[in-house]
């Protein structure tokens, strides 16, 4: 499925659901966009979202195919079904965009995010932080006598939960990568 080679004239059979789906319900979708790795391509995607007033909850980008010169952008966005369809169609119009995949509707997908959390504390709180990190399978990647840096991967809500627990235990800095996602199966 390619955004620009839309099968069967982009009808109900295509990735773009062109059937009306006007509803007020806000949905959260994860969209994977395969783009030509050329200067300005990220600015085009971000400019589309800001210019047309769409939401970006998270966005990650990196080159995934060096020889094919392709980067993969994973965007988590929210909007009504109509807005989500517009976002996909508008992304498909961008010339260096090769493919647009809505991982939320195309089948089961896995989503992961990596976060690093600096927790500054001592005494009982320090022990508790380490214990919770163990439960969440977070790794310690740096330690001083009064701080830890934890590294955790997981679905965004798992990271939310871990960060919420760390807050009273001395969370001082949080860095998140945003979501990377893939469809399950082959």
């Amino acid at each position: 499925m390619s955004a620009l080679h839309i099968k069967k004239g982009a009808t109900r059979h295509s990735a773009y659901n062109l059937r009306p789906t006007f509803s007020d319900v806000q949905e959260r979708h994860t969209i994977a966009v395969l783009v030509e790795n050329e200067p300005g391509v990220l600015a085009r995607v971000i400019g589309l979202f800001s210019g047309r007033g769409y939401n970006i909850e998270s966005l990650t980008v990196a080159e995934v195919d060096h020889t094919g010169h392709l980067s993969r952008i994973t965007i988590v966005t929210t909007g009504t079904p109509q807005v989500i369809e517009q976002i996909k169609a508008q992304l498909g119009r961008i010339v260096p965009v090769h493919e647009v995949h809505d991982l939320t509707v195309e089948g089961a997908s896995v989503e992961r995010e990596l976060a690093m959390l600096k927790v500054v504390n001592s005494g009982e709180k320090r022990v508790e932080a380490l214990r919770l990190a163990d439960i969440f399978r977070a790794n310690v990647v740096d330690s001083t006598l009064n701080s830890f840096v934890f590294e955790i991967t997981g679905a965004p809500d798992k990271i939310d939960a871990f960060a919420d627990l760390m807050r009273p235990l001395g969370l001082s800095e949080l860095a998140r990568t945003g979501v990377a996602a893939l469809l399950r199966g082959d």
Binding site: G9, L18, P20, T21, Q82, Q86, A89, G92, R93
Partner: peptide, 18 residues
């Protein structure tokens, strides 16, 4: 010819991209 024109403003019953 532009899929983004379809259903942008008005709900369409028979969409034809071409």
């Amino acid at each position: 010819i532009d899929p983004s024109s379809i259903n942008k403003v008005i709900k369409t019953d028979i969409p034809i991209v071409g």
